[in-house]
Design a binder for these strands. Structure first.
Lengths: 314, 314
DNA sequence: CTCATTTTTTGTCCTAGACAAAACAACCGT
DNA sequence: ACGGTTGTTTTGTCTAGGACAAAAAATGAG
């Protein structure tokens, strides 16, 4: 009953379900784009089922990125890949004009990564960590690297498995360091913070960076890991009497759903429990419901904690 | 264009997309079951869209578990929840008859978890780790606890966010310990192992346990984290010249797709690169393609490594 | 009891159409 | 020139009903 492998399972062809997994675009969207814009234009296999060549999948990935950045499908689906690339180039430049200065320094990491010198890569990370200290490491190295690697992947410069290697190694370094931090003693430490991502957002690295900074500022952190359903986030926050719930939204998450998710969560959580949402998701830059603090930059966290403490000081 | 929150967004009702996220059952399946078996029987909102009450969602979750265990939809969708529960009871008992003896000991952990005494929980884990040593900790505590927690969740005994807490804490303990293990020196260490899960399998904890055991046996491990697409697994294995690719399949993963995935991977990977697949997924117990080693129990790993070394010794 | 063959079950894909919310454009009054 | 109200277009998600191959179960023959 599984429809997939007809026989000639050319590894450069994907079924519609495969494309959904790879691009995050639903089957319905793929079909309706095909009808409306004439793209994608999959071939058909023996049964008449859609079969997508890899280059179209690549284009779809790119399209999704651009749409999340705020461009509209109708305007860009017809464009050739070369133009899409230059559009994306421009968009990323606009979004983070500041990090141009550190880029040559970070480029070295990318090269280690794409030549698969993993051990050297890890050592380079650790060296930076030692030299800069944990806070500056997170702010100046880890966070920019994440966006850089994400962009490089969207542009096709690096492979997805190389991004996975990157995430894994960075996770190791951060988790290792985090563990050696003294945990604040039980009741006294405030704010009490709950960290997680919502269902549909599998990336936990942003969470880990946030947790690192929070722990450095001696907050009482509890992470639920990625993909907690909304109802369970609320239950956990209440059980833990959390002061703040921190959510991370990566560029992968559907930007149009961010608003709806935050609104629902705001209504599920107790009023005195704050929501801080951060990450590289373009949806965060649009209007968001009141009662939710949007933090586009990790830098803002330290100040925000100080502000919270001042507010709750008597 | 987002259809979801019509207005009266009763938090005990879910749209069809929400049910898909929560249960892992696709929209098509939900609709076709409704037509064929009369269940689920969602209400309709103002637009005529399906709206699922929570109790039906719970039943659907349970149904999925039972179907993965090998039961057939047509036989069980009509049954009331109580009967489904007793069926599941019996199935889990049959599957792991051995771990009954350790259960009272593990029960203590479950209680700490469901009363949210996280710090005590972590300390209890660490205490066991110290007492038993890493290998026995993984085999006798961590692995059985994972299945126990998974079952408790399916049965409704614990909340999902409590399972998340569990996973997170166990991950911390294991990663922390793993890091302090001496890494085998570059070229000499064999086998070279690549660990990951395929797209659609988000659970990485089994991977971590496997990696722990492999590292204890001084293999050269590289983890890609969860959800690497098949093509990228192959690329990474080739780039790394991996001797073994280890894949983990949890009960969450669709049991019927395991075979197809393994077949495709087998054809993508070089012949001299072995595939070891493990985890609690019922699909692994069915017939699997040749050229793939199925390991139902973590215990088998050490012996398998020894066997591999003997085979490649000259 | 084993193996090959038919029948039933079941998941996924197909087409074609509907519609509300989001995004955009046009307008107006200050 | 700018903020708010209106109307129009775009776009994602849902609906319906039908088709079909692969898996599983049932059947039959040796």
């Amino acid at each position: 009953m599984v429809r997939s492998p007809v026989m000639a399972d050319d590894s450069r062809l994907l079924s519609i379900a495969g494309v959904e997994r790879e691009t995050g675009l639903g089957k319905d969207v793929l079909r309706v784009w095909e009808k409306r814009y004439g793209f994608p234009a999959p071939e058909r296999d023996v049964h008449g089922d859609r079969v997508y060549p890899m280059d179209q999948v690549d284009k779809l990935r790119l399209l999704r990125r651009l749409i999340d950045d705020g461009l509209r499908p109708g305007k860009i689906v017809g464009l050739p890949i070369s133009e899409l690339l230059s559009l994306h180039e421009r968009a990323t430049r606009n979004a983070s004009p500041a990090h141009g200065c550190t880029e040559p320094e970070l480029q070295e990491f990318i090269e280690l990564l794409s030549s698969h010198r993993i051990d050297e890569f890890r050592l380079a990370l650790l060296a930076r960590l030692m030299r800069l200290g944990l806070e500056r490491f997170v702010l100046d190295i880890a966070a920019p690297l994440c966006t850089l690697v994400g962009d490089a992947w969207a542009r096709g410069t690096i492979q997805l498995f190389e991004e996975h290697m990157f995430t894994e190694e960075l996770t190791r370094v951060l988790r290792g360091t985090l563990q050696s931090l003294a945990r604040p003693s039980g009741d006294s430490a405030r704010p009490r913070v709950l960290l997680t991502t919502v269902s549909g957002e599998p990336h936990a690295i942003g969470l880990l960076m946030a947790e690192t900074l929070m722990s450095l500022n001696s907050c009482d952190c509890l992470s639920l890991g990625p993909q907690t359903p909304e109802g369970d986030i609320a239950q956990a926050a209440i059980a833990r009497q959390a002061d703040i719930v921190i959510l991370s939204f990566s560029a992968w998450f559907n930007a149009q759903q961010v608003g709806a998710v935050l609104t629902r969560l705001r209504s599920l959580l107790p009023a005195q429990c704050e929501i801080w949402a951060g990450g590289r998701n373009p949806g965060l830059q649009r209007d968001q419901p009141s009662g939710v603090t949007i933090m586009t930059e990790l830098r803002e966290i330290s100040a925000a904690i100080t502000a919270w403490r001042r507010r709750h000081d008597r």
